[in-house]
């Protein structure tokens, strides 16, 4: 995921060839001084070696620290560092990702509201028509059984006439609402695109975090920082693990999660429900 400008920081923790060469030379000098029993000269060489070691260490730590700094800068958490193609001026990629996800929530919410509005408006129209049709059907049956007087039939004919007109209007309204429900699903395309971009960003952040950990690990190694074993997160928990997790994306891959309502029912009945 790292492009040319953000290529992985290459830092070598071990001493370079120059350093090895200097060390060898000084070691030879030290041996020579010792053989000549020249203690002053030998002491100077040892002093030299100490300085060389210190300088090398400082240089390597310096390099690694710079690498660490670069890795952090690459996160582009600060607004001034933002470089996303369509991120707003002065906005970090992280803040931009948050905006994108807020946009997804808004679009899906609007669509859900619109759909339910249409359904809630459509249901009474359909129910009213069904109600009138049922009543007319009863009266029509009476007519067929010749149980209806002429006056009553005139009334029935008018009601049928009214019902047909109402039915045409009602159907037109319901069709219009169904079409609006259809159009309200256009969010899927837009949210899909936005979420895909956020997935790319998350992947990028993960890559940079791995790089950061690698550089930090080298600094620890070089400077001899010992990791605190007590800092490990505790994994053994007592009792029920009932912290909310939200929807399960990989329910089929987890033993501690039910895979559907049937599983829930089985579990509950095993508990005596």
């Amino acid at each position: 995921m790292l492009d040319d400008n953000n290529k992985p920081v290459q830092v070598k923790a071990d001493a370079s060839d120059d350093v090895w060469q200097s060390l060898k030379e000084r070691a030879a000098n030290l041996m020579a001084s010792l053989e000549e029993r020249d203690y002053v000269s030998a002491n100077n060489v040892i002093q030299d070696l100490n300085e060389l070691r210190d300088n090398t260490l400082y240089r390597e730590v310096g390099k690694l620290t710079r690498g660490l700094h670069d890795a952090i800068v690459n996160f582009e958490l600060e607004p001034s560092k933002a470089s996303g193609t369509d991120s707003a001026e002065g906005e970090s990629q992280m803040a931009n990702a948050k905006d994108r996800l807020d946009y997804v929530i808004n679009l899906t919410q609007t669509s859900a509201d619109k759909t339910m509005d249409m359904v809630e408006e459509g249901i009474p129209i359909a129910s009213a028509q069904a109600e009138i049709a049922k009543q007319l059907q009863l009266d029509w049956a009476r007519l067929l059984r010749r149980e209806m007087q002429v006056d009553e039939f005139k009334g029935l004919a008018e009601r049928i006439d009214g019902f047909l007109a109402q039915s045409i209007d009602g159907n037109a309204l319901i069709s219009q609402k169904l079409n609006e429900i259809l159009l309200a699903q256009d969010f899927q395309d837009l949210t899909g695109q936005v979420i895909t971009k956020v997935i790319v960003l998350v992947q990028d952040v993960e890559d940079r975090l791995v790089e950061l950990m690698r550089v930090a690990g080298q600094i620890e190694e070089l400077t001899g920082i010992v990791k605190d074993p007590a800092a490990k997160p505790k994994t053994n928990k007592q009792g029920l693990d009932s912290a909310p997790e939200g929807p399960q994306i990989h329910a089929d891959k987890r033993e501690d999660v039910v895979s559907g309502q049937d599983d829930v029912d089985d579990l509950l009945s095993s508990l005596g429900f």
């Binding site: 029920l240 693990d241 939200g246 929807p247 039910v258 895979s259 309502q261 829930v264 579990l267 509950l268």
Partner: peptide, 29 residues
Amino acid sequence: TAEAKRDQIVEAAQAGVNGYVVKPFTAAV
């Protein structure tokens, strides 16, 4: 609820829930 861990269902049962439906659910369920 969307919460689907076995431990959660057990805890809800122990706390005295009368029914447990996991999302997404159907009208029939």
